[in-house]
Design a protein around this nucleic acid. Sequence first.
DNA 1: CCAAGGCAATAGAGCGCTCTAATCGATTCG
DNA 2: CGAATCGATTAGAGCGCTCTATTGCCTTGG
Lengths: 341, 341
Amino acid sequence: MAQPTMDDVARVAGVSRALVSLVMREASNVSDRRRQAVLEAAAELGYRPNILARNLASRRTMTLGVMINDLHNPFFAEAVDGIQARADEAGYQLLLATERTGRSGQTDAIETFLRFRVDGLILTGPRLPTPEIRAAADTCPIVLLGRTLRIPEVDTVNTDERIGARLAVRHLFDLGHREIAHIDGGRGAGGPPRRAGYERAMRELGLDDAIRIVEGNFTEEGGVRGADQLLTGGTAPTAIFAANDLTAVGALDRAEDLGLDVPGDLSIMGYDNTAMAAMHHMSLTTIDQPREEMGRIAVDLLLERLDDDRTAAIRHVATPSLVTRSSTGPPPDPRQLQSDP
Amino acid sequence: MAQPTMDDVARVAGVSRALVSLVMREASNVSDRRRQAVLEAAAELGYRPNILARNLASRRTMTLGVMINDLHNPFFAEAVDGIQARADEAGYQLLLATERTGRSGQTDAIETFLRFRVDGLILTGPRLPTPEIRAAADTCPIVLLGRTLRIPEVDTVNTDERIGARLAVRHLFDLGHREIAHIDGGRGAGGPPRRAGYERAMRELGLDDAIRIVEGNFTEEGGVRGADQLLTGGTAPTAIFAANDLTAVGALDRAEDLGLDVPGDLSIMGYDNTAMAAMHHMSLTTIDQPREEMGRIAVDLLLERLDDDRTAAIRHVATPSLVTRSSTGPPPDPRQLQSDP
DNA sequence: CCAAGGCAATAGAGCGCTCTAATCGATTCG
DNA sequence: CGAATCGATTAGAGCGCTCTATTGCCTTGG
């Protein structure tokens, strides 16, 4: 199991270790003859460069750390797709970890990454406290994806959640809805701005009095509870704007259990345009975020700090868009609405 | 940005580098006085061990490579949860990658892992050719999860897919179904054994003549097509056993589009018990695999090879179980069935 | 014909850590 | 009281690579 080293290759090829190193790094000024000799020797021995040694010596790891908030949330999986693609192109490796990696509590994920001397860090929707992020930021460049943070040391990539929320409200308004309620995302990343966007959009439309928010938590169960609250007590809204797709699915469940037809009796909107929303069986109207693109941009921002040594923070804000499916439609006939008290 | 090294800490603490090393590795025979001095110096300087140097010197990385077949498939996410948990306990780090990591085509994921000198490798549901896996296996221990491979160098962790398939068929049989069709998984990992299990179970029940298989591919779309084939041409089955949950969802869609009530007119079963199946709105009867446990076991197998230097291959086969939800029920009244010619 | 220049190849000093063997006091014991 | 013992500490040789400076060698031009 003892693996061959560069010295072994050098010996077999009859050259110096330095020359082998040059060949491995694909340096330009090596004669074809020697290069061949080295490559053949390497192949013969089954030589495999030791990345650790290389990184130690070069003080560059060509590796980016990616912290995934939640492996189960398709939003992150798709953002990682973009990160992966761009990192590949740029010749960077990825180290993935979930927020709870590392020996339970002792060493958190960020610390682990820094010990590995990653060249840069992408944190997707991290729940981490600001001081911790700031502390890490003076060791290596950091990009936040899906969370805002106004400190100069880190770049951020987001969509404008308020615009997204407004798109949702407008869509429902245009269909004729006036009683539009919101099941929010609590304090989770994206929750507050989506809620704020909802409120603002309602006011813009003169629907101040119809503003109605119940608490959610970005889970299906939260959607079930929120919908229950909205639909069983007093006057029910004609449309529900949920903070994310999962919440919308929960609301959908509850609505159907209550015998309501969606979108006949009630329109429901999600947010994120996850694969789930696209499933024919769900067919959720929702707000799309260009996740892959956001992932790519996050890598680009890192590379700019790394290669072009930019130091000013950049806040990239992508534009969300409406995806219309079949969970929304015109509100029911007003007569039916009133006949319920 | 120049990070402090062990020598810096040693200087500040007034001890040798070797002693700092001992403290960092939590060695036992260091006096409390010195230990304190070292820890204080380290804290003061903001010292952070360089894992690369450590790994290089110790020839152990305490890192396991995990190749994830598909980041979007919840099955793998949950298996990784188990792997993560167990690795944490054992003090191992995880390096995750998807099968298509690495500079496009040049260096595949496995090679990358080996260059990083991971101590062990877990491949979840890999589509990789056998020779490649075998080649990697003589460099470091390998465990396959969710795929069988009968070569002595690698351990495997699976569920007995045939038993799982039989559970599904029996469940439907017990409900009264006789016309039970199968939408298979093609050549994807798990596809063939599930199909074989279906066939065998049908025979055991004397339903040889009712065996009916259409092709699928583990996707929703495959489910839609498969269901279409089964439900629109000639005599329709009363129950469909789909190769996985996604396929089942597709079948569900198609069935509902055709105006069939599930489970009133048609029962549908999935496989995997993904979070999707559990969603209230879907509520799919399905076969559960203990994914987290499988993940933990995979790590254990690796550790046995690493620490107890076991060399004989182990094939762990977990037991699948039936999860009954509301997509299955008794077949419709026979009279209705016949009235369709 | 010789100095200057250019290119290919190499020597050798690290990178920051681990780990074996050696050292050094302080005890213990015959 | 000197030898043996033992725990705490240290010296120093790597781990496998990169990278700067340097060495040769060959071409070129004056």
